[in-house]
Design a protein around this nucleic acid. Structure first.
Lengths: 219, 219
DNA sequence: TACTGTGAAGGCCTTCACAGCG
DNA sequence: CGCTGTGAAGGCCTTCACAGTA
C-alpha cells in the first residue's frame, strides 16, 4: 500500500522538462530575495512575471511535483522555498570542484551565486606548478593528479571545467575516471564523455554569437 | 521578378528556431577545426555526430537557408564555413564591450573562443577607481560614465555583463540607454529590459544546479 | 551508389480555458 | 471572489522516411 502525505513532494510521474528545473531554480532564487525582504506570501503572477515567464507556466511546473499553494491566496514563501529545495535536491550541501585555476576558475571560486543552491566549491585543481599550493578565495589549489583522493574525501559528484580548449577533453575524461558524474563545461569544445555522465555547456562565444545573429538579422 | 543565385544564402522564410542558430555556431567552430587539419570535404554524419546531434538535424538546420551540399559527397568545408558565416552575420567583425572588469570580466578579456565568430572584445568598463586606467589583455579599462562615447566610436551593439548581482540591473539599463541592443548576462539575477533588447543569461549557478538535480534524482 | 534535402508524422512543451477550492 | 491546479488544445521542433540528385 502506498501512503503519501498530503503535502509531500510528489515523485514526478515521468521525465520533467529540463526547462522546468531551470525555471524552478530561478524561482528559488527569487523566493530567497523575497524572504530577505520579509515578504511572507506571494502569488504565481507576482512570482513569475518579474522572472519573465507566465504564471500558468509556473503553476504547471509546480504541479509535476505536488500542490503547494492556497486557492485565493497564493504561496507561503518559506514553505514553497523548502519544497523547491526538496525538488531540486538542494536540501543538502553539494560539493563541487573547479578544474582549471586560471582566471575563469578564479572568478568562479569567488562567485556569489552558489549559495542560493547550497552548492559549495570546495576544491580547485590545476597542473601549473606556479598555481599549485596557492590559496584562492580560501580554497587551496591542488595538482590534478590528486583529483581522485579529493573527489572521494569530499564526495564530489560534479565539476566545473575551466581549462583551455586543448586540455578540456582529456581533463574531463580524467575527472570521469575519478568518479565525477556531471560536468559544467566552459571550454569552447564539444566534450565526448560516456553515457550516464551529464554535461552542460556554458558556451560563451556561441551564446554571444547567437545574440549577434539576431542583431544582424534585425529581429 | 525575384532572381536568386543558385548558391546564395536564402533569406529564411519564417522564424528560425534559436537552437538552429546555436547548432550552426557549433558547426562553424567544428568546421574551423577541420580546416586547420586540412580536411576539405565532410558529410553530415561526420560533422554532426561528434557534436552530439543528428545528421538529419543538421541538414534540416541548413535547409532553412539554402542548399549547400553535393548529393553522394557531402559539403566542401571552406564553402560551408563561408555560408554559415553569412547566416550568422559573422562575415564582418562585431565589437563587444565587457561591463565589469572584475575576475570574470578579466577572464573574458583573455577568452580564446571568440575568434571563431569574428567577435572582438574591444572595451572594458568598471566603476572601481583602482581598475580604471589599467590595461587588461591589451584593453584599457574605462569608467562606465564613458560608455556612451565608446559605444558610438566602436559601433558596439552587444555587451557582456559581469558586474555584481546588485549592480547588474542598473548597469544594464545604462548600457541600453547608450545604445546597446544585446546583453549576455552573467549576474545571477533576472534583468528587466525594454522590449527589443535581446538578453541571454549565462546562469552558472542555475545551470550547475540543474546538473546536480539530475544527479540527486539518479537519472 | 551514397548522401543531400524535405514533406509528413510524431512528440514534447506551452498556452488556454475553466473547474475546484478556500 | 480570487487564485490554484490541470485536462485539453495548440504550436513548435525534431525525427522519420524517402524522393531527388550527382
Amino acid at each position: 500500500m502506498k501512503t503519501v502525505t498530503k503535502s509531500a513532494v510528489r515523485q514526478p510521474p515521468r521525465d520533467i522538462p529540463l526547462d522546468t528545473i531551470r525555471r524552478l531554480s530561478i524561482c528559488l532564487r527569487a523566493l530567497n530575495r523575497l524572504k530577505e525582504r520579509g515578504i511572507a506570501t506571494v502569488n504565481s503572477v507576482e512570482l513569475a512575471e518579474p522572472l519573465n515567464f507566465s504564471s500558468e507556466q509556473l503553476r504547471k511546473d509546480l504541479s509535476y511535483f505536488g500542490r503547494f499553494g492556497k486557492s485565493g491566496v497564493g504561496y507561503d514563501v518559506g514553505q514553497l522555498s523548502g519544497k523547491i529545495h526538496s525538488i531540486l535536491g538542494t536540501d543538502k550541501v553539494w560539493n563541487v570542484a573547479v578544474l582549471g585555476a586560471g582566471e575563469l576558475g578564479t572568478a568562479l571560486l569567488g562567485y556569489s551565486g552558489f549559495e542560493d543552491f547550497n552548492l559549495r566549491v570546495c576544491a580547485a585543481l590545476d597542473n601549473d606548478p606556479r598555481k599549485i599550493g596557492k590559496t584562492i578565495n580560501g580554497v587551496r589549489v591542488s595538482a590534478i593528479a590528486g583529483l581522485s583522493d579529493i573527489v572521494r574525501r569530499n564526495e564530489i559528484k560534479a565539476a566545473i571545467l575551466t581549462v583551455t580548449k586543448t586540455a578540456a577533453q582529456e581533463v574531463a575524461q580524467k575527472a570521469v575516471a575519478c568518479g565525477i558524474k556531471a560536468v559544467l563545461n566552459f571550454a569552447p569544445v564539444t566534450l565526448n564523455l560516456p553515457k550516464g555522465v551529464h554535461v552542460s555547456n556554458m558556451d560563451v562565444s556561441c551564446e554571444l554569437e547567437t545574440l549577434v545573429c539576431r542583431l544582424a538579422n534585425r529581429n
